[in-house]
């Protein structure tokens, strides 16, 4: 799991948004969202330690 990857894709998305390329910006944003979900599955599937 490459941790810095979503920062790269969201930077690309921001760059295209800044350049006015809406479709490319939304495309890279979607790629970031997919990586985000994969990251969540990687980091959030251990049981919570909240039993009292």
């Amino acid at each position: 799991m490459v941790m810095m990857l979503p920062f790269v894709t969201v930077l690309l998305s921001a760059w295209f948004a800044w350049r006015g390329s809406c479709a490319a910006a939304v495309g890279w944003w979607l790629a970031t969202l997919v990586i985000f979900v994969a990251w969540c599955l990687y980091h959030m599937t251990s049981p919570l330690n909240i039993s009292l």
């Binding site: 979503p6 920062f7 998305s13 948004a17 944003w29 970031t32």
Partner: peptide
């Protein structure tokens, strides 16, 4: 990352 993603929408 989520804050950055939210910023994309505002920048657009």
């Amino acid at each position: 990352v989520a804050f950055a993603m939210a910023g994309i929408g505002l920048l657009l």
